[in-house]
Design a protein around this nucleic acid. Structure first.
Lengths: 184, 184
DNA sequence: GTCTATAACAAGATAGAC
DNA sequence: GTCTATCTTGTTATAGAC
């Protein structure tokens, strides 16, 4: 009897595929190959390819937000850690799964579309909460703008391997999160 | 004998499909349906689906840059017109074809990948040229950052229909292009 | 240039044995 | 939980008539 493949492993590999190839470009066959299963065996763990989107984004949100410093006592540290995590992932992987899925899922997969919307809304809200705890003005708007700038910078990583725009986006992000800290 | 379908029409419809569904998600059958042809007839006009990427992006670059004010005599006007065109397209269509293709084409379609890289490099260079004519500092870097910020803002249009981040990105873009104009 | 017909293949998903 | 086998559909692309 063969060792059962951990579900976490499947979701992690699915994330790699979605990030690199997008929703349409990722196939259940490729995923099965990566985890050493037959394609059909995936369907005993997940009802459909579409359902993988929610799993992938739930894992990613958890990776991003778990164990952050408490915004109430260390808003600046929470902000810097969060921005750092996002930027590190973009640098290491070259792109964002969430953005690829945001562009890649359509009304034909409404559950996946909802999962994407929910993912970004939660991430933005977590960012806004930190900014608010740090007494930054317009936290919701600034959170959305900051996330957009980080995401947009992945364009240059993907097309040219240029990390410059991401680094600039990180600098701007750290600056807006510094309000309330000692003056510079 | 039936009227021949203009090639421009096919490329325009291909652009809509690529923008909405991405490279993998767009099918030659869908494209054929849109222009009123059989899928097979497309192959007398284009050697492959991959070749459409270059055509679509060439058309888009032309739409974006054609007839701009001369940067040498009106850098501020050229910049404002260019940013306005990009932003209008993003607002009207909700997303950017170029970004969808940047994420969506892989090493398996190297010609398409090169077309995407070339598209963004040319657009950035055109923006940098305008900034340089307007005596803005670090034109190449600022051009790349500006384009990244506009692109990133489409995340919120796609997921939530929120135009706020795009409008903020436009404001920042117009600000950096105002250097050299009368002080504010 | 467009058509009909078809090739050659890969996709997501299901049934039932072990 | 994983397997073999199979179904159904959709994909890009080609051959040849008109």
């Amino acid at each position: 009897m063969r060792e059962a493949v951990p579900i976490h492993r499947i979701v992690v590999e699915a994330r790699e595929l979605f990030r690199e190839y997008g929703y349409e470009g990722a196939s259940m066959r490729d995923l099965a190959d990566r985890v050493g299963l037959r394609p059909q065996s995936l369907y005993t763990r997940f009802p459909s390819k579409e359902s993988l989107v929610r799993e992938v984004l739930a894992l990613t949100l958890d990776d991003t937000l778990a164990g952050l410093p408490d915004p109430a006592t260390d808003a600046r540290g929470a902000w810097r850690t969060l921005i750092g995590r996002i930027a590190e992932t973009f640098e290491a992987r070259g792109r964002c799964v969430g953005l690829h899925l945001a562009y890649g899922v359509t009304a034909q997969t409404p559950d996946a579309q909802d999962a994407v919307r929910s993912f970004f809304a939660r991430l933005r809200d977590a960012m806004a909460e930190i900014l608010e705890a740090g007494k930054a003005p317009e936290p919701a708007s600034v959170a959305a703008d900051t996330l957009a700038q980080l995401e947009g910078a992945t364009l240059w990583i993907t097309t040219e391997g240029d990390m410059g725009p991401l680094r600039h986006a990180v600098e701007r992000a750290l600056y807006v999160g510094d309000l309330g800290a000692e003056p510079r």
